[in-house]
Design a protein around this nucleic acid. Structure first.
Lengths: 151, 151
DNA sequence: ACAAACAAGACCATTTCTATCCTGATTTAA
DNA sequence: TTAAATCAGGATAGAAATGGTCTTGTTTGT
């Protein structure tokens, strides 16, 4: 089943939220993030623990605590976040590592998967969160009918 | 988890086997197919029941029974077989159908997934089993050191 | 000292995946 | 007509992944 897990999807949303508010230099608490991105709060809390351990966000305890990105949004790719949550991407078990599959020498599909994976992974790597945050703001402007003021 | 299921992988192998022997106009029994492709026999048997119901293979009962492809290998794509076993490919739940995701109007990642899926699916559709069977034969020749006789 | 936050781990229900097994129906050949 | 070969269909089952909750602790600012 070629499907993004909920966990990874939620993590992407969380990082996206922090990317959009990044320039404001504020810390965001989990409740705020989970409400804004429509993710169950306790689940989001768990996800952010994991994102903190993996170095995507910095956490602060206590009053005035919360989360901030620990890198610039432009230095975080979609691939980074997805692989952080799901582990490395392998479209087929036969690609887990070179030589893993005893049939790869005679299997014509092996190469097909290899190439598909390369294309897919490269594609996800192309998107960083600065870029996504900009698109998000554009989309919101369009969908709420707020045109950009003409200069 | 972006991973091909075992079931789909085995189905691909099964169809591949029948594609390679297609021109010989023989029926193959499940035991032969499962041994050749190194798949647990009872599992392969189940898979072929399903492949038969879905029109990929014709089955014959009784002595001299077995399976044959019901279409020419060139008319079966990798995508066909995979979707038959796993259902339609959606890289993200948000793509299940237009309007399914309430956030797609403001979510910048939605379009990224849409495009990635289009590329991926088109890629799998490009490969038909005639092509794969030919590659397989080439690979076997190379790996067994049997060079093609020079004309 | 208290309240607001995150940290960590246990826990749990559901679904999916992988696979097996048993019984039955059909066909061919002896 | 009987036996053997072969597929059909359904039930079952264990393991893993998924998605999510809860409880208990720790840290920090006021």
């Amino acid at each position: 089943m070629f499907r993004l897990s909920r966990g990874a999807e939620y993590a992407v949303r969380g990082i996206l939220y922090l990317s959009i508010t990044y320039s404001e230099e504020k810390v965001s608490v989990i409740e705020e993030i989970s409400k804004a991105q429509d993710v169950p709060l306790p689940y989001m809390a768990k996800l952010f623990q994991s994102l903190a351990r993996k170095g995507f966000v910095k956490s602060f305890k206590g009053q005035k605590g919360g989360f901030v990105l620990s890198k610039h949004p432009k230095d975080i790719s979609l691939l980074d976040v997805i692989e952080a949550m799901e582990g490395p991407i392998f479209l087929n078990v036969c690609l887990i590592h070179d030589g893993y599959c005893p049939r790869d020498k005679v299997c014509p599909v092996h190469d097909v998967w290899g190439e598909a994976q390369r294309v897919f992974v490269d594609y996800l790597r192309k998107y960083n969160f600065e870029r996504l945050a900009v698109s998000a703001e554009k989309k919101v402007r369009v969908s709420t009918g707020k045109a950009k003021r003409r200069s």
